[in-house]
Design a protein around this nucleic acid. Structure first.
Lengths: 334, 334
DNA sequence: TTGAAAGCGGTACCAC
DNA sequence: GTGGTACCGCTTTCAA
């Protein structure tokens, strides 16, 4: 006796409606799809029967025959991370403009969940946009045949597309600004975790070098406000003479802002802070966070646009077009 | 000549693979679905052929025959509003636990988009969870037959379910705390827009009355940080003697926090602030925002749980179980 | 181990 | 205006 207590309501099909209304299935179809080759009264009768029976057309059957609806899968590590929130919102907006549906998968920053998602997603969507941590091999293996647009990393196989984030100029401008303000000891809070330094750090190093600034004061930070705070503390302990910091991203910067206040350093007077991403969130903290800002809406729009092209087999955008440039936005913290 | 320049790649079906591999369609199916009633070499041959042709099974055809995958639609007015971000994240998490897919629709706070979504969603998902602004009549009309769980408002028709937010005790505790701290002039920043005062305001009024506190100092605020800031300014201009404010939600409270600083009032010394929602965001501002906190994860989990019951026709949760209680969390701003 | 046939629930194209 | 039929692409009996 495993069956549920409720009256397991066997799926009502178009056939049931047809029989109940005393018409054929196609007539039911006509009534439901508002075709005009049908008598008014018949139509009403069918509609009534359908309501009566609680009929709902199967999206699968319908999708099978009229191949219209496109659904894309959006895979992100953490929707609560404001950066991904913005990316997701942007993708949703761009998708909505095309009448597409977006299935969102939050992998909770777990590699296993990511793989699991990848596994199942292939048979659920027409294309994938995502921020993945797995290898391209794994990606390829699971998404075989599905267009994939990568966010937050660059692809090495022509099999994929990716939206490149170009912050070189923006970071240079940030450093230039700090130098112009008289800062000579500028530290950086890079991301922690992965072994290799980030591209953002390279941009920073290049710019710093161009201004003859020391570039060794770098501390890795967890990708969280707490991580940023802790990293700032470490940095200032090791280098008390630091008067400005550039951070891997805004979340880290916001944590640094908070920690600076706790350490009795007022921002931007005693410590200038410049983040990266330009999150809307930056406007809510005090002082407002200066940042090398990304146009996340454009990022989302580009990803969707590329998917569209990939899907139609039309000419996909090249690497040169798949770029979002970040630019310095000074509002308070520097 | 409207045809695209690319080689419109006609959909490869299981049939093509079968022919190419020199087997029948069902053998292809076996190979792809990893059944064991198939010869190893045959399987490999089929797999190769499939890869060769770039074959991808149709999710519609597959869904049609094995009726497993459930997809739920999540409709929210604005993913960038941190409250909805949390709700969405919670729903995604709960859905993932069941292996469900979630299609997210952001209606951009526009009634027309909401209706449009409603229109299309019925034929795309198995159930709907959402924060809607339209009438129950409209909801009913468009979601006919689909289980619907409402968030942020209560239902009046048995046709729907809703997750109720019970903040009565929490708000009472908030007022009690303020009173205990010596505050006698407590204002409120309610939501603006709609004509009627919010339920939260009623809770506030009731609690305030219980402590013999004046309850007229209420200002409506736009649901944004800026709105909260502006509202606080209005409030303090009209009632300079106010020493504490309770707000409709955390976003408004955060705006108030910012404005207070600009007005030279330090928080919580000169002005105590208590929000509502308990967003994670509240931990990022200075001082950390005290709030009548909601368990958004539970909210999402409840919604999904109810959907599950509705879907199986099993015994759905009653109103008494569909409640999320909010409780006071004091961390800094009061 | 493999294949033929019968659906899954709709829609389109044809007669009537 | 309405019904018959084929078919969308795949899986699941059931024989062979």
């Amino acid at each position: 006796m495993v069956s549920s207590s409720g009256t397991e309501p066997r799926k009502v099909t178009i056939h049931d409606v047809a029989r109940s209304a005393g018409v054929s299935r196609q007539t039911v179809s006509r009534a439901l799809n508002d075709k005009d080759e049908i008598d008014g009264s018949t139509k009403q009768r069918v509609l009534d029967a359908a309501r009566e029976l609680g009929y709902r057309p199967s999206r699968f059957a319908r999708g099978l025959v009229r191949q219209d609806t496109t659904t894309i899968g959006l895979v992100i590590p953490d929707l609560l991370n404001p950066f991904f929130t913005e990316v997701a919102a942007a993708a949703l907006e761009a998708a909505r403009a095309r009448g597409w549906h977006v299935v969102v998968y939050d992998t909770a920053d777990r590699a296993e969940e990511e793989l699991g998602t990848l596994q199942v997603i292939g048979s659920q969507v027409d294309a994938v946009i995502g921020y993945f941590s797995c290898s391209e091999d794994e990606l390829e293996q699971f998404t075989r045949g599905v267009p994939v647009v990568l966010i937050g990393r660059e692809h090495h196989t022509p099999r994929f597309s990716s939206i490149r984030i170009d912050g070189e100029e923006g970071v240079h401008a940030a450093v230039a600004h700090l130098v112009a303000e008289g800062h000579t000891r500028v530290g950086m809070l890079d991301h922690g975790g992965r072994a290799e330094p980030s591209v953002r750090r390279e941009w920073f190093a290049t710019a710093a070098a161009a201004y003859g600034i020391d570039t060794d004061m770098v501390v890795g930070a967890d990708q969280s406000a707490d991580g940023g705070g802790a990293a700032l503390k470490t940095l200032l302990t090791a280098h008390p003479d630091v008067t400005a910091v550039f951070t891997f991203n805004d979340i880290i910067a916001i944590g640094a802002l908070r920690e600076a206040r706790r350490l009795g350093r007022s921002v931007p007077q005693d410590l200038a802070v410049i983040g990266f991403d330009g999150l809307k969130l930056g406007a809510l903290v005090e002082p407002p966070l200066s940042s090398v800002a990304l146009d996340t809406r454009k990022l989302g729009a580009l990803a969707i646009e590329q998917v569209a092209r990939l899907l139609t087999g039309g000419n996909p955008l090249g690497a040169d077009d798949l770029v979002v440039r970040a630019e310095l936005r000074l509002v308070g913290s520097a």
